[in-house]
């Protein structure tokens, strides 16, 4: 049981997907301009990452490993995750339209987001069990959601500030992101 908590704690804080592993930087910088859109993106990532962790676990241990095809895991995962997202999208559209409209455009956007693929690959690397994989996927996505939402707040503050002309726009964004990542590196001392 303590193992599960360790995985959660590690995935959310010490090994945060954005600030420590640098996965998913594209949506992190792309859709963090408003807290509401950032939260929407985070929700969609959480949804997909949890399910894809379970699906890729099954594909790896039931299909790839028995045939000795571990070296093809990346391409197999891309295939499985992409189909899974498409399937989930259709399912939601039919049965949970409110969730579909809430996740909206973000769902297809993250079809093969590197953070989603990264979670699947890290699961294999760490040799997580099924439950551990799902917990890892879920909490890594929670860490992602937290990071992107916090950063959206930073960006909202930044809009009111007046940086020098050469820093305006994207440069100051990257500087702010690096400062946030540095702050998060403080957690890396908390290894158990």
């Amino acid at each position: 049981m303590s193992n599960i908590f360790l995985i959660m704690f590690g995935a959310i804080l010490t090994e945060n997907f954005i600030f420590s592993r640098f996965y998913g930087c594209c949506p992190f910088l792309g859709v963090s301009d408003k807290p509401s859109t950032a939260l929407g993106m985070g929700m969609a990532v959480t949804f997909v990452m949890t399910l894809s962790s379970a699906a890729t676990y099954a594909v790896y241990y039931l299909l790839l490993e028995p045939f000795g095809l571990e070296y093809l895991k990346t391409i197999a995962f891309i295939l499985v995750i992409a189909s899974l997202v498409q399937f989930i999208e259709m399912f939601l559209k039919k049965y949970i339209p409110s969730l579909y409209s809430a996740l909206g455009i973000y769902l297809p956007l993250i079809t093969t987001n590197c953070a989603v693929l990264g979670a699947a690959l890290v699961n294999i690397q760490d040799q997580n069990s099924f439950v551990e994989s799902v917990v890892f996927g879920f909490s890594a996505a929670l860490g992602f959601t937290m990071a992107i939402t916090v950063f959206a707040g930073v960006r909202a503050k930044m809009q009111l500030s007046d940086p020098p002309k050469s820093f305006r726009g994207f440069p100051i964004l990257l500087i702010a992101a690096s400062l946030a990542a540095m702050a998060f590196s403080g957690f890396s001392g908390m290894k158990f």
């Binding site: 299909l63 045939f67 093809l72 295939l79 189909s83 399937f87 259709m90 399912f91 049965y95």
Partner: peptide, 25 residues
């Protein structure tokens, strides 16, 4: 073996999505 497995996987996923478009229309 890998070629067949991936063809199988692709066809399976394709079939799943094809059925899904009908069922969840």
């Amino acid at each position: 073996t890998p070629a067949l497995i991936f063809v199988g996987l692709g066809v399976l996923m394709g079939a799943l999505l094809a059925v899904a478009t009908k069922v969840f229309h």
